Simulated scan of single mutants.
Amino acid sequence: MGFYILLLILAMGMLSRSKLVMLTASILLIFRILHLQRFFKFLSNNGINMGLLLLVMTVLIPFATDQVTLKDLKDTMTSFSGIIAILGGLLATKLNGMGLNLLKVEPQLVIGMVVGSIIGIIFWGGVPVGPLMAGGLTALFIKILGLL
């Protein structure tokens, strides 16, 4: 059944023109076809951390290449938009943590998040940043609806 779900995700990635979704589904399909499922456990255990490592490295490159100065940093940290950015970062990390916990408890929700992400790409011009934020928002929505 998982093979067909990956095919469906591949098709949805093609429909949404999301190279990332297409590449990911294709790699996992190839792993299944070549019976390389032993890598699934490794990816399951380490993939998020590896992806986050690359993402954080990418974000920090302007510091490593001296594109951001101490003055830029000070100006940003003391501006209204800089303070809002700090609050956004705080909220995002909290939601991402909630999303990670939700995905550990209910991994089947990933399908809904992928479908929602693909719909967002197709109709809203969205960018598939990752399942953690989608999981965080899902966890937040579940909590809010649980209070009603």
Rank of each mutant, 00 (worst) to 15 (best):
L7K: 00
A64D: 02
L53T: 14
S26I: 03
I122Y: 02
S26V: 11
G13D: 10
D66K: 15
G112P: 03
V21I: 15
L53F: 13
G125I: 01
F31T: 06
I122F: 04
L102P: 02
T93F: 07
E106S: 15
I61C: 09
M113G: 04
L87S: 09
K74R: 13
M98P: 07
G89P: 12
S26Q: 07
T24E: 09
G130P: 05
L132E: 00
V110G: 09
I9Q: 04
S117V: 03
G125V: 00
I30L: 13
S16C: 05
F42N: 04
I83S: 06
L60H: 02
L52H: 02
V110C: 12
A25E: 01
P131G: 15
G116D: 06
I48D: 10
I30K: 09
H35N: 13
P107R: 02
S79K: 11
L70H: 10
V115I: 15
T78A: 07
G112V: 05
A64Y: 13
W124E: 01
P62H: 08
G51H: 05
T93R: 06
S117D: 05
M14C: 07
V127Q: 12
H35F: 07
N96K: 08
G47D: 00
V105F: 01
T69V: 06
N45K: 11
L36W: 08
G126Y: 01
N101C: 06
G13K: 02
S44E: 15
G47T: 10
G82R: 15
T58R: 08
L20R: 02
G99W: 06
W124F: 15
K41W: 09
M14S: 00
F40W: 07
P131M: 14
I27W: 03
F42Y: 14
H35Q: 12
M98A: 14
T65I: 07
K19W: 00
F123P: 08
G97H: 15
F39N: 01
D66E: 11
L15H: 05
V21C: 01
G130V: 04
K71W: 04
K74C: 02
K19H: 11
S44W: 12
R17Y: 10
V110N: 13
K71C: 04
L29R: 09
I30P: 08
G120T: 00
I61S: 08
H35V: 03
G130F: 01
I121T: 01
L103R: 08
L43H: 00
T24R: 05
T24S: 13
F80W: 14
V115D: 01
I5A: 12
S79D: 04
L29C: 12
T65W: 06
G126A: 09
L103M: 08
G130L: 05
I9Y: 01
L10Q: 10
V114Y: 02
L54D: 05
T78K: 10
G125T: 03
V59R: 04
L8T: 11
M50W: 11
V127G: 12
L52F: 12
F39W: 10
L6C: 06
T78M: 11
G88P: 07
P128E: 06
T69M: 13
L91V: 15
P62M: 10
S81T: 12
M14R: 06
P62F: 03
P128N: 05
L29E: 08
V56F: 11
T58D: 09
W124H: 10
N96M: 14
W124P: 04
L36Q: 13
K94H: 07
